[in-house]
Amino acid sequence: MGDFILLMISAILVNNILLIRFLGNCPFLGVSRSMDTATGMGLAVIFVLTLAGMITWLVHHALLIPLGLEYLRTIAFILVIATLVQFVEMVIQKTAPPLYEALGIYLPLITTNCAVLGVAIINIEEGYDLMTAIFFSFASACGFALALVLIAGIRERFALVEIPRAFEGTAIGLITAGLIALAFSGFIGLV
């Protein structure tokens, strides 16, 4: 149990998937302008990433390895992820239409979120067993959501402040991310 807690702290803080490992940046800068979209995206990612981590692990160990097709890992994983997102989209549309409206285009965008494919690959590279892989996927996604919400909170404040024109938009977002990453770097050595 202690190992899992350490893994979670490591994945969320010390090796934050977005600020330290650099995975998941594209949607990050697009979605983090308001707290609402950030929270919605964060929750969606947690759901998809945990499921994807589990399914890709199973596909790798039950299908690719026995058939000696490990070199097809990338293509198999991305197909699994794309299908999963499509499926999740349909389910949310049927069961929670307002949520579907709120997430809008960001849901299919999760397919190209490097964090999802990245974590799936890390699970295999680090040789995690199924339980650890699921935990790691969940924890990484939480780290992503955390970073997203933090930055959105700050960027919302920017609307009230004068920013030099050249820095408006993405540039100041990046610098903010950098400063938060600096804060998170302080966690190194915690675990």
Binding site: L174, I175, G178
Partner: peptide, 18 residues
């Protein structure tokens, strides 16, 4: 390190906007 990457890119981007 990671923070430097974000900041460097941000500054370069601002420069290009200028």
């Amino acid at each position: 390190k990671p923070p430097g990457a974000f900041v460097a890119l941000g500054i370069l981007l601002a420069f290009m906007n200028l």
